[in-house]
Amino acid sequence: MKIPKTKKGLKTKMKLLAAAEKVFGEKGYSDSSVSQITRKARVAMGTFYIYYDSKSEIFVDLVKKLNHDLRKAISISVTGLSTRKEIEITGFKSFFEFLKKHKSLYRIVRQAEFVDPELFQWYYNEISKGYAEGLSVAMDRGEVRRMDPELLSFELMGVADFIGMKYILWDDKLNDEMIDQVMDFILHGLLVHAENSKSLPHNGDEISHRIGNQNIPSQ
Results as ranks from 00 to 15, higher is better:
residue 78 V to L: 04
residue 204 G to C: 00
residue 21 E to L: 03
residue 134 G to H: 08
residue 126 E to W: 07
residue 112 A to T: 10
residue 213 N to K: 14
residue 155 E to C: 13
residue 113 E to K: 13
residue 84 R to Y: 14
residue 9 G to F: 06
residue 47 T to L: 08
residue 19 A to I: 04
residue 80 G to Y: 04
residue 68 H to S: 11
residue 154 F to R: 15
residue 136 S to K: 15
residue 139 M to T: 03
residue 100 K to Y: 03
residue 3 I to F: 02
residue 86 E to F: 10
residue 52 Y to N: 09
residue 89 I to T: 05
residue 72 K to D: 12
residue 32 S to E: 07
residue 164 G to S: 08
residue 142 G to M: 01
residue 173 K to D: 03
residue 2 K to R: 13
residue 213 N to I: 01
residue 175 N to A: 08
residue 35 S to R: 15
residue 7 K to L: 13
residue 52 Y to C: 05
residue 181 Q to K: 15
residue 21 E to K: 13
residue 31 D to F: 11
residue 153 S to N: 02
residue 64 K to P: 07
residue 120 F to K: 00
residue 4 P to H: 10
residue 167 Y to V: 02
residue 48 F to D: 08
residue 106 Y to G: 00
residue 206 E to H: 13
residue 122 W to D: 11
residue 35 S to D: 11
residue 92 F to Q: 03
residue 87 I to G: 01
residue 55 K to Q: 10
residue 99 L to A: 04
residue 66 L to W: 02
residue 165 M to Y: 15
residue 171 D to S: 09
residue 109 V to K: 05
residue 79 T to S: 15
residue 18 A to E: 15
residue 58 I to R: 04
residue 61 D to T: 11
residue 60 V to G: 07
residue 16 L to E: 07
residue 42 R to K: 15
residue 11 K to F: 02
residue 108 I to N: 02
residue 169 L to K: 13
residue 78 V to A: 11
residue 20 A to H: 01
residue 191 L to I: 07
residue 91 G to N: 06
residue 3 I to T: 13
residue 74 I to R: 14
residue 159 V to T: 08
residue 47 T to N: 01
residue 1 M to R: 03
residue 202 H to L: 09
residue 156 L to D: 00
residue 118 E to F: 05
